[in-house]
Design a binder for these strands. Structure first.
Length: 289
DNA sequence: GTCCAGGGAATCA
DNA sequence: TGATTCCATGGA
């Protein structure tokens, strides 16, 4: 491990707040100078805006920080083209894209994304972040950088002997059993994650994710969208997305009466294979603006 | 005290 | 299939 630096020159679609506060990730924190520091795999990186450029500095495990960054931040994908396509749809798309124009959808580790969104069920973002930090501190690997200690997200092997009670004591609440069972399933290869990453059939991958404890339709779609699986056609529906979709396209007096199928149908017809991106722009805009 | 949070699972019609 | 209810926890 050695200190490395990479400078991303004048990216067209890239904004730290949009990327890290849009609800897709939980381990990036804003610093006092406006930069963000975070950890993924065994990389600890600080990103600071410098004019129109972004300076990435930190520690990188495999020795090629640029490569890690390109993959994690999805830098090979043309977001300008995607935004252009979605902007053709309607006024609401143009408004929400204008608000979150710097969003990129991260390629996060599949295992970490599964556990993180299992924890997200009926929970709020500050508390989800707290639980994930405590989980990492208790069972992940410690890495020191610039005098501060950071902890990697624990692997399935590192959680092998953790009990339900230990999860409960970390503050997981009713999700303790779910985390325990899902970890066990992965360790026993009831679901092979490497195999899953090779499967191009989104329907099949979704079915298999749904066999995990704590993974229902919404969590499965978040995993498909925010992890290395990177299926941009899925449309995760949570309370915020239901709210914004009803406000904009359905206008039912009683939001609770709007069915998921109804929302899914509109999303598919309107946004097609870019539904996941549309969802993220709408979610971020409705929740923050 | 009450409501809510990027829902899921069990139960019942 | 579709609707209801319960599930820990912490902040507003």
């Amino acid at each position: 491990m050695k200190e490395q630096q990479y400078i991303l020159k004048e990216p067209k679609t890239f904004d730290l707040k949009d990327i890290f506060e849009c609800g897709q990730c939980f381990r990036w924190n804003e610093q006092e100078d406006g930069s963000y520091t975070g950890i993924w795999k065994e990389n600890i990186v600080n990103i600071k805006k410098d004019g129109q450029d972004y300076v990435f500095s930190g520690m990188c495990k495999n020795g090629n920080l640029k490569e890690e960054i390109y993959h994690y931040f999805d830098l090979a994908r043309n977001y300008e083209q995607i935004k252009k396509e979605l902007s053709k749809k309607d006024e609401y798309m143009r408004t929400s894209i204008a608000y979150g124009k710097g969003i990129r959808i991260l390629n996060q580790d599949l295992w970490e994304t599964i556990i993180s969104f299992t924890i997200s069920a009926n929970n709020n973002i500050p508390r989800i972040k707290g639980i994930i930090e405590r989980l990492s501190k208790a069972y992940g690997k410690e890495i020191e950088w610039k005098g501060k200690k950071y902890y990697t997200f624990p692997t399935p092997e590192e959680l092998k002997d953790v009990t339900v009670k230990e999860y409960r004591d970390l503050g997981l609440g009713f999700r303790d059993v779910r985390l325990y069972e899902t970890t066990k399933m992965i360790l026993e290869r009831k679901l092979d994650l490497q195999e899953l990453e090779k499967n191009p059939n989104t329907i099949e991958v979704r079915e298999k994710l749904l066999t995990l404890s704590g993974v229902g339709p919404k969590v499965a779609d978040c995993i498909l969208l925010f992890s290395d699986l990177k299926r941009l056609e899925v449309f995760p529906i949570d309370v915020w997305v239901r709210r914004v979709m009803n406000d904009l396209y359905i206008q039912n007096e009683d939001e609770a009466k709007v069915s998921k199928k109804q929302i899914e149908k509109i999303a598919k017809n309107k946004f097609g294979n870019l539904a996941g991106l549309a969802q993220q722009y709408l979610f971020y805009w409705r929740r923050e603006a």
